[in-house]
Design a protein around this nucleic acid. Structure first.
Length: 255
DNA sequence: ATGGCTACTCCTAGTAGA
């Protein structure tokens, strides 16, 4: 079973690449972030034609998440407790093939100290509290998406330059560690310990070509899924070519 | 790296992303 996460940075702009990638990689579940489209305008027909159910939690212009799956999703949750009525659409949960899939697009934070930064840390706190009261670490649960946090020095191209900066500040790393401490493991690190495994490269200044990347897209799994996890791959080829997203897909293979 | 790109919008300039 292949479960993927991909921040596509607009599903409409990225549609040709998403379609060809689905045809080529044949994932069973795909969590998309930054779809940037209301549900009525999601390219449903094109994705369903490939044999996927589409579960949507979209929004105009910003944010928006979706779960594509070969089989029908169940037990859907869309709202994180504490969200306002006009909440940013950043989370979507469904049970697929006996696995609870939590798709998240964590706030970026802007810059350290800004109101959006405080919102990011508070959002992480609410997500952890939601796990506490809703689920159990003994179940088959997987959280994936764009976390907008690089966990440690191996995950940024220049740790000295990134120290204390947005995406790599101590409070952000602590917020991610606090989430993980609920009972999760970083699936990629079950298999690979080296640095330089990035999932995002800025569009500017030839960052991809120069190796200026960050690992901010993650797949976290509970113990029962960690035992089934045979491999995790970052599909960095998807960052190349015509009109790429600035993020590469991450794919976990479960036995 | 500090913005050199990309995508969005009641669209040709301002905002946000990471």
């Amino acid at each position: 079973m292949k479960i993927a996460t991909w921040n596509v940075n607009s599903v409409r702009t990225r549609l040709p690449r998403v379609v060809s990638w689905l045809e080529r990689r044949q994932p069973d579940v795909v969590c998309l972030q930054e779809t940037k489209v209301v549900d009525e305008s999601f390219p449903l027909a094109e994705i369903e034609a490939l044999g996927y159910h589409c579960l949507l939690n979209g929004q105009k212009s910003y944010n928006g998440v979706a779960i594509l799956s070969r089989t029908e999703p169940q037990d859907v949750v869309r709202l994180l407790p504490g969200d306002e009525l006009d909440a940013e659409h950043r989370m979507l949960i469904a049970v697929i093939e006996g696995i609870r899939i939590v798709n998240i697009y964590a706030p970026n934070g802007g810059d350290v100290g800004l109101p959006r930064y405080a919102f990011k840390l508070e959002w992480y706190r609410r997500l952890r509290e939601f796990l506490n009261v809703s689920f159990d670490p003994s179940e088959n649960l997987l959280i994936c998406g764009d976390f907008n946090v690089a966990p440690d020095d191996r995950d940024v191209w220049d740790p000295q330059r990134w120290r204390g900066k947005i995406l790599f500040s101590e409070p952000e790393k602590e917020a991610l560690r606090n989430l993980v401490s609920w009972g999760l493991q970083d699936a990629l690190r079950l298999h690979k310990s080296e640095g330089g495994l990035y999932t995002f490269w800025d569009y500017r200044a030839g960052a991809f070509h120069r190796g200026w990347g960050l690992r901010i897209d993650h797949i976290l799994v509970t113990e029962s899924l960690a035992r089934r996890c045979a491999d995790v791959e970052i599909d960095r080829n998807e960052r190349k070519g015509e009109k790429p997203s600035d993020h590469a897909p991450v794919i976990a293979t479960l036995e």
